[in-house]
Write a protein that binds this DNA or RNA. Sequence first.
DNA 1: TGACTGTATGACTATTTTGTCATATGCTCA
DNA 2: TGAGCATATGACAAAATAGTCATACAGTCA
Lengths: 110, 110
Amino acid sequence: MSKPRQRTSRRSTRKTSDAVEILDAVLGNDPKARAAADKAYDDAVIAMMIYQARTRARMTQKQLADLIDSDQAVISRLEDANYRGHSLTMLRKIARALGKRLDIRFVDAA
Amino acid sequence: MSKPRQRTSRRSTRKTSDAVEILDAVLGNDPKARAAADKAYDDAVIAMMIYQARTRARMTQKQLADLIDSDQAVISRLEDANYRGHSLTMLRKIARALGKRLDIRFVDAA
DNA sequence: TGACTGTATGACTATTTTGTCATATGCTCA
DNA sequence: TGAGCATATGACAAAATAGTCATACAGTCA
């Protein structure tokens, strides 16, 4: 990606910081910003879900990767708010590794 | 797949009938059948979700396929209880086409 | 029976997602 | 500062998923 790294804290160097910006836009009232954000919203939410689930379990990307026979670089991609290729397969593996299960359903649109 | 076609009714010719058999096993008490069913359970549930959402919307596979710029054969595969490759991308497209949204979350395992 | 509609399946190609590895950056702490 | 850990990124190959088309099978109905 092209986003310059920030220097203030460890957390702010993560790609998920993009997701936070997106959510700011979504929760705000600027129609343009909101429209732009909507496109990437779903994927950003998934990225944040994974990040939150992992960090709450107090695991590093490498630890989680090892649990699911994957690689640290793969987890990093999945937590990248701009990544568009999340699969059920990976989400299920991650859920299982974290002692959770993946709940999926169609709900009426707001 | 190798399952022989049944001759009793239209519904019974669908691959989703496999999912019904799986659910029978899961809901039953036979430990062996249940263990065997568990492997394919998640995918079968997704297949049924898609089938139910589509038929409740009174659409044919072709109609749904057209809505998401896909093909009838693709929808058929997604509704096949033995299919293992469901993606978030497709589920989202289908949800949107049916006026729904996809709700995904990690929940504590039972 | 024959036409027509809906679904399943096979084969093959195209696209997308993962695996893998190398490496850069940022942070912490001695 | 230097070592070490955690994360991000790029590049490329491998594997998985979707697209496409042809066709078979089932059921319905005139």
